[in-house]
Design a protein around this nucleic acid. Structure first.
Lengths: 216, 216
DNA sequence: GGGGATATTCCAAGAAATGGGGATAGCGTC
DNA sequence: GACGCTATCCCCATTTCTTGGAATATCCCC
């Protein structure tokens, strides 16, 4: 396929991975060591960017996809220094399941053959799905994501929008205590203590979406 | 591509759709009417199955992917009666965004040409991505998003993970008041009042990612 | 050297969220 | 009819967050 490196991986910290997670790659060992030592599994810029696409993207597009921090630039710099050049990454996302991706890269200084993007898209996508099935990761996904009632969902949505319990009660036309109760139950079902994490989980599971929250 | 029908759609109830949502298809109008009348956007069995895959799947695999209810069987039965036969669906999932999919189907009684699965995968995937961008479902407003300092980002990340200010102060090894201050400034830069919305905005901007937050 | 951004710590008052109890009513299932 | 789920309301105590101030010190840039 005209590329030198491949990397198929779940986006977890492999230093302390506990659940089922897959990683297969042919990057230089020194890169994996440095990558793990810095706990990049969960915050690598390429991985972060992959959480914002449905299909493959060239690494050159990453700065347009996420906010690049100085560390992000340092990470990409390090990769280049170790010999990893331009790349193309295929995201893999299933609601409620560990995120992952499959990347292909050429050596530093080489040009990525754009005519192989489609092939990478296909190979990367099906390769990840195969790994996902082998690892049993998919058995831990949406099957056990909590189900909320309509009212609970409404309250979570307005809470994610930054409204207070009292404001929500006015918006929904119910009592203040009712809203407290709905959010209490929603937190219990998700097994979380804080409404910030509740909002995040509801977003991740597809219960609510950014467009629900941020419109207007 | 050897198929008769296509359907590219966000999984929402189009009777009461309010946000940006896309639907393009050439199914019979009677099917869309019946589909909407029954509010299937969110519970159609093909859509539900697509929430458990990262790549395309043949509709014949659906019973192995989700638990089929009697209603599900009735829905598929109705589709067949209207003239929709076997199909292949490509899921499209981005954390925090409305779920969607792109399907291809042959007429009732016809055989789906398996040799076109790969082509469907590619066309469906990129078609959905194109529709997603056109619809503004994802508007990359990276340019004018606030810039946080490293410490502020750390605090936002831990706050999104559901930690209290005091817990964060222990984790980061700084004073309790310092964390309060960082989050105060972070909220000011984002122009929000609540940490739940702060977490959502930071996620939306790509400052932090779901895999940063959720270990699993 | 001055200006600006950053990181750090501290105080205090009030608002809001959380966790623990309750209760009533409707609705559908077994 | 008993049971479970849902939605609605109420009380309490405690913790946590938010907002308004304040102060140092470092670092980089001009």
């Amino acid at each position: 396929m005209g590329v030198r490196y491949f990397a198929l991986s779940h986006h977890v910290d492999f230093r302390q991975a506990n659940g089922p997670a897959v990683r297969v790659h042919n990057y230089p060992p020194s890169w994996q060591e440095w990558f793990d030592a810095n706990g990049l599994g969960k915050c690598d810029p390429i991985h972060r960017a992959s959480h914002r696409a449905t299909v493959g993207f060239a690494w050159s597009e990453v700065p347009d996809m996420i906010k690049m921090t100085p560390e992000d630039r340092f990470v990409l710099d390090q990769a280049y220094r170790i010999g990893i050049g331009d790349g193309f990454t295929i995201p893999a996302s299933v609601p409620g399941e560990t995120l992952g991706s499959c990347s292909f890269a050429v050596g530093a200084g080489e040009a990525f053959p754009a005519e192989f993007h489609f092939v990478c898209q296909l190979v990367g996508g099906f390769a990840f799905e195969a790994a996902r099935r082998l690892s049993g990761a998919r058995d831990f996904g949406i099957a056990n994501t909590p189900i909320l009632t309509d009212r609970q969902r409404d309250c979570v949505l307005w809470a994610a929008r930054g409204k207070t319990d009292w404001e929500i009660s006015v918006i929904l036309g119910v009592g203040h205590e009712t809203v407290i109760q709905h959010l209490k139950h929603a937190r219990e079902r998700y097994g979380v203590q804080k409404r910030a994490l509740l909002a995040v989980r509801a977003l991740f599971d597809g219960l609510i979406s950014f467009s629900d929250i941020l419109k207007r």
